[in-house]
């Protein structure tokens, strides 16, 4: 199912179009339509990535390849550098050394981030908040329609004229997801997006994330401290220890996944024991 959703268009053609995108608006619009029809993930190659804050070396050489459309979860103890890795991928911080490439030129709208906090503008109604996600297409004629469509995807079409302050935590996070999705991103980075939600809301949000990922086929990178969330959602779980990728675990379980199944529980246990054994060593 998921492979079928991935682009059947040759990557090279997409790449050559994208290279011209900043120069000609027409090409951009053409590409826009194409993206709506044929949203697809981007592959991600990271080589020798390093990042320090002052004398503290947070990332000590990360090498990683993520195929287009894969759902990758990154777990690790707090302070291991997982959020830093995500911020570098999303282009929020500067790289000290190494490289991150998406195999082609990317538009800012191609890569979106969702944070633990919804970060909605309290003075803008729900629909306007989603429109923010359109980036440079905010002024376009179909902005309203696209924002409404994104709101429908996250199941909040009826809240379009509400202020964010009247929404529940889970609803706010869904608006934030709609805002991230509205530009049809090809890479979506999640920084503990469900960390502040209660257990039930978490599970329904996890299902929503999985559904939109399967529908749209973007490459998903999820940073989380919750190992069971990681194995429930991801194709692949990376364990980061002391600024390096310590384990790379493939999750083969069929989708839709059954939460609490023996297979997932076994994987969760082995990843947890990796994390805990690292704890014992220090």
């Amino acid at each position: 199912m998921q492979t079928a959703l991935r682009t059947s268009l040759p990557e090279t053609e997409l790449a050559s179009r994208a290279n011209f995108a900043p120069h000609a608006r027409i090409v951009r619009e053409e590409r826009q339509e194409e993206r709506l029809a044929q949203a697809s993930g981007l592959p991600l190659s990271i080589r020798g990535l390093r990042k320090s804050f002052g004398s503290n070396e947070v990332l000590r050489g990360i090498d990683l390849h993520i195929p287009a459309g894969q759902f990758v979860a990154i777990v690790g103890k707090s302070g291991c550098g997982k959020s830093t890795l995500l911020r570098l991928i999303a282009g929020l911080d500067k790289i000290d050394a190494g490289s991150i490439s998406f195999g082609q030129d990317v538009q800012p709208e191609d890569i979106r981030v969702m944070f633990q906090e919804p970060r909605l503008l309290p003075w803008a109604r729900v629909l306007a908040n989603v429109e923010v996600g359109l980036g440079r297409d905010r002024a376009s004629k179909d902005a309203h329609a696209r924002a409404e469509q994104a709101l429908t995807e996250v199941g909040l079409a009826d809240k379009r004229d509400q202020w964010p302050s009247v929404l529940s935590g889970g609803q706010k996070q869904r608006v934030a997801l709609g805002r991230a999705l509205v530009s049809r991103p090809r890479v979506l980075a999640f920084d503990e997006p469900l960390g502040a939600l209660d257990a039930l809301t978490r599970i329904s949000m996890q299902r929503l994330l999985e559904r939109v990922w399967r529908d749209q086929g973007f490459t998903a990178i999820l940073v989380t401290h919750d190992v069971s969330e990681a194995v429930a959602l991801a194709d692949r779980v990376l364990v980061i220890e002391e600024g390096r990728i310590a384990h790379d675990v493939v999750v083969n379980a069929a989708r839709p996944r059954e939460r609490g199944s023996a297979e997932l529980a076994g994987l969760e246990g082995s990843i947890l024991s990796h994390l805990l054994s690292a704890d014992d060593r220090t």
Partner: peptide, 20 residues
């Protein structure tokens, strides 16, 4: 965090001022 959000979503300085 809202200012960072605005920058991520490609707001220009003017938009950032007006909207955030």
């Amino acid at each position: 965090q809202l200012i960072e959000m605005g920058r991520i979503y490609g707001m220009t300085d003017g938009e950032l001022f007006r909207r955030v």
